[in-house]
Nucleic acid binder design. Structure first.
Length: 830
RNA sequence: GCCGGGAUGGCGGAACUGGUAGACGCACGGGAUUCAAAAUCCCGCGCUAGCAAUAGCGUGUCGGUUCGAUUCCGACUCUCGGCACCA
């Protein structure tokens, strides 16, 4: 309707013959000028005035790889839109920025380019900071932190010592990927098809002593906490829940048949116990290792198993292999001997490193039993299962002696109770979550503040000696951490006995740094303690934005750390992140962009060619924030064109300063008023509730298209045109802050854009007295009808049946029913 | 292998609570303007048949629920992310 009306008028419109020269949209100069203004006016410095309502907007801080990539642009554009929107809504916004500066790439670059990791990292930070500034983000740069700075990692050394003293950090041995040629530990990423990426040699699993954090002590609390996270995506909460993997099952003791000792297994299916036909134990199980001493075949098998890396995905997808151990265990209920197999699919770090195998009711056991021709007994009956198929569901027990006929749920209880009575087993709550290994055999990380004393053992460093600084300017090679050979670092005195001792040379997992940086931003300049009372004003983070790839590890560790800080009374909030937005990945050629794959797209080209506003607008418009985005250069022109149109529109408005006498309540004006207010409502809702930025932008585009048409016919007076422009510029400003500030201040001389507030909706302008009704016959669209909203249902139905397109279909046929959805649709069923 | 997502025109996507599939933008085609081009403006644009009015088909595949399904349910295919040392 609206379209037709305006189009008719346009046909009669004579374009003016004289058109003044428009100034060109010189985005580069404009953006630099405006960024300087922001910096000079300290516009984005967060106030510490705690009487103001605060909003803490945070994007996951970047690893300083040296160059911005599209994922960064997407992340920081989203964060900036939200923080600018909140600022316009009157909040005291803090949007800080920092650098997740420790990590593997610095070492790789150092080896490759023969530079020191610290030098490389700080150069990268300078470069990326320069790029980020070009994006025009509303960041409080005064709070910048870099995790490789000793003023930051000093506090995690301090924290490490507190937790060690509390028993929340302990030492045990665990597996790493060992490159036998380079004699160094490899990250999973550095193992390609089972081989070291540099040496090309088959990697081996090796067991070494490492420090662990007792995250499992917090498993239940971390699980419980998920329920309160109402502003987190369900998807992320589900993933974390499954990762923690709480299960209620049964621990069963199988005694060895011919020697002393028991094998404990954990099972969530005690109801299938009578179908357990063999035991499978991990190659690293102490019984396996014991047997290997006297048995060449077993020893060889275990060595063979070690050739699979430590990554769970590799273990799970490897071909299932096993070897008979030669020994038997007694079934706790039947007393029968069942064979014990050593199997590569049993994980040493889950449960007890041993499973009771029930081939008919577990897919892995089934595959294994088929391969080695092991006995299978079906113990759960189901109408859905075939004779020779694995059945994972519940059902009634069969082939289970006294338990026959019991349903699974009941059988679980009864069999567990029986085992308990026999002292052969017990109910057990088990978590899939494992303690967090934090030791890394690397140079470029936070030194673990422990000292090895030949008399006192492992001793934490004295707090007054912190920070233990990583030596500067050290160049490294492929042979592992230089700390191991660096006497100036190694030599120290034992804090307990004073005798000479050596430092721990392992450094911390870099997830350690990213687990508390959000709190440090609030106490960025505090050098007396880790955190101060300001964290209680700023925390929790109100809106946290980052890639979906961090859904489990980073976000779980950060939640865990925040609980540690809470228990140490350093913060008074348990959960660190109130609302979470997990942006989708920016993909290129269908896969994650990464340096190692060499498929990165450089956003600098876009910024140079089109400006930051265009780059920001395009990445926000191209796809919903939470979906992955397949990158394509096409389409950026459209976003740039939109900004050029906006530029032209405002400048044309500025030319026509003579007052135009026009009725302000003509039909075109009413339609424009309606559209303006509908757009304000839509954009507000999209930003506040729906986090749907692409649709917010498209609705502003619609508004602008309508205003352009209205301008051409000059049917709209200058007051309304200015109102629409003013408000439209504010709606658009979170996305494209430079051009909107510039144009808004052009229209509103002597006023400052930053003093403005988000526009409110004029409800009166949104009242409509007519609406379009959809007419269907048997659910298929046949016609439209404009009705008055006041029209009663009966009259509507009558009118619909009289419509020609309806009448000819209905004809003589019997009408079964008529469905009427108020102000929306009529469906005639014949 | 396990856990969690995704699939809609030539392309990116929209349709919010089961109610007009394709908003907005890109690409493309036609026209205006121009000496010409770029830029800009106007019109068209799911597929098939038809001069047209119109009809049929159409949201990864197969099936179900419903007056009505992109939306809900079941099974599957492909694809992306994570799997504890990439960050």
């Amino acid at each position: 309707m609206e379209q037709i009306h305006l189009n008719l008028l346009i046909k009669n419109f004579q374009p003016s013959l004289i058109r003044a020269m428009l100034p060109e949209y010189t985005f580069k100069e404009l953006e630099i000028t405006i960024q300087k203004e922001w910096e000079k006016g300290k516009i984005f410095e967060a106030s510490e005035d705690t009487s103001k309502k605060k909003f803490y907007a945070l994007c996951m801080f970047p690893y300083p790889s040296g160059k911005l990539h599209m994922g960064h642009v997407r992340n920081y554009a989203i964060g900036d839109v939200i923080s600018r929107f909140k600022r316009l809504n009157g909040f005291n916004v803090m949007q800080p920025m920092g650098w997740d500066a420790f990590g593997l790439p610095a070492e790789n670059a150092a080896i490759k380019n023969n530079t020191a990791p610290d030098k490389w990292t700080y150069e990268n930070i300078a470069q990326m900071k320069n790029q980020l500034k070009q994006l025009g983000l509303a960041i409080d740069w005064g709070r910048e932190i870099a995790t490789c700075d000793s003023s930051y990692y000093k506090w995690e050394q301090w924290l490490f010592i507190q937790l060690y003293k509390q028993g929340l950090i302990y030492k045990k041995t665990s597996m790493v990927n060992w490159d036998p040629v380079d004699q160094t530990v490899l990250a999973n990423e550095q193992v390609i098809d089972g081989r070291g990426w540099r040496s090309g040699e088959l990697v081996e699993r090796k067991e070494i002593p490492q420090y662990f954090m007792k995250i499992t002590d917090y498993a239940e609390d971390l699980l419980d906490g998920l329920d309160g996270l109402n502003e987190w995506p369900e998807q992320v909460k589900t993933m974390q829940k499954n990762w923690i993997g709480k299960s209620i099952g049964c621990e069963v003791d199988f005694t060895l048949a011919d020697s002393e000792g028991i094998i404990k297994v954990y099972t969530t299916r005690p109801d299938t116990l009578m179908g357990a036909t063999y035991l499978a134990i991990a190659p690293e199980h102490k019984i396996s290792i014991g047997l290997a001493n006297n048995n060449e075949d077993i020893n060889n098998f275990i060595i063979e198993c070690k050739k699979i890396g430590v990554a769970e995905a590799d273990i799970a997808t490897a071909e299932k292999k096993g070897i008979f151990s030669g020994i038997y265990a007694k079934h706790p209920l039947t007393g029968k001997n069942i064979p014990i197999w050593i199997a590569n699919y049993v994980l040493i770090n889950y449960g007890e490193g041993a499973v009771m195998a029930v081939p008919f009711h577990d897919a892995r056991d089934f595959e294994f039993a088929k391969k080695y021709n092991l006995t299978m007994t079906k113990v759960v009956d189901s109408e859905f299962s075939n004779e020779d198929e694995v059945y994972l569901g519940d059902g009634k027990l069969i082939n289970s002696d006294e338990f026959n006929g019991l349903p699974s749920l009941e059988a679980k209880k009864v069999i567990t109770a029986k085992l308990e009575a026999l002292s052969q087993g017990r109910k057990k709550i088990q978590y899939r979550l494992r303690d967090w290994g934090v030791s890394r055999q690397r140079f470029w990380g936070c030194p673990i503040p422990m000292i090895k004393c030949s008399k006192c053992g492992d001793v934490p460093e004295a707090e007054e000696n912190l920070p233990i600084k990583l030596p500067a300017g050290i160049s490294i090679d492929a042979s592992g951490s230089p700390l191991k050979k660096l006497q100036s670092f190694l030599n120290c005195l034992c804090p307990l006995c004073g005798s000479s001792a050596t430092r721990e040379t392992d450094t911390l997992d870099t997830f350690f740094e990213s687990s508390w940086y959000f709190a440090r931003y609030a106490s960025f300049d505090q050098d007396k303690k880790m955190l101060d009372e300001r964290v209680n004003y700023w925390l929790p983070v109100d809106y946290y934005i980052g890639g979906i790839e961090h859904a489990i590890l980073h976000l779980l560790y950060a939640r865990f750390f925040n609980r540690l800080l809470y228990d140490l009374k350093l913060t008074n909030t348990k959960e660190p992140f109130h609302k979470l937005l997990t942006q989708g990945m920016v993909l290129k050629d269908g896969t994650k962009m990464s340096k190692s794959k060499g498929n990165t797209v450089d956003p600098q080209d876009l910024i140079d060619r089109y400006g930051a506003d265009t780059a920001r607008l395009f990445i926000m418009f191209a796809a919903p924030a939470e979906q992955s985005l397949e990158w394509s250069d096409e389409g950026i022109e459209g976003s740039h064109r939109f900004l050029k149109k906006l530029w032209k529109l405002v400048h044309e408005f500025l030319e026509h300063t003579e007052v135009q006498e026009l009725e302000s309540n003509n039909e075109g004006a009413q339609q424009l008023q309606y559209k303006l207010n509908a757009t304000i409502e839509k954009v507000t809702d999209d930003l506040e509730r729906r986090t749907s930025f692409n649709t917010a932008i498209s609705s502003i585009m619609e508004l602008m298209n309508m205003l352009i048409k209205a301008n051409q016919i000059k049917a709209i007076d200058l007051v309304l045109r200015k109102e629409v422009l003013d408000k439209m510029l504010i709606l658009l400003s979170p996305f494209v802050p430079h051009i909107t500030k510039y144009l808004w201040e052009k229209i509103n001389k002597n006023k400052v854009f930053e003093d403005q507030l988000w526009p409110s909706v004029d409800r009166a302008a949104l009242i409509k007295d007519e609406t379009t009704l959809v007419i269907q016959v048997n659910g298929k669209l046949k016609a439209n009808m404009i009705i008055s909203v006041a029209m009663p249902e009966e009259s509507i139905k009558e009118a619909v049946l009289k419509l020609e397109s309806v009448a000819k279909l209905v004809d003589q046929k019997k009408i079964k029913k008529i469905i009427y959805v108020k102000n929306k649709l009529v469906n005639i069923v014949i």
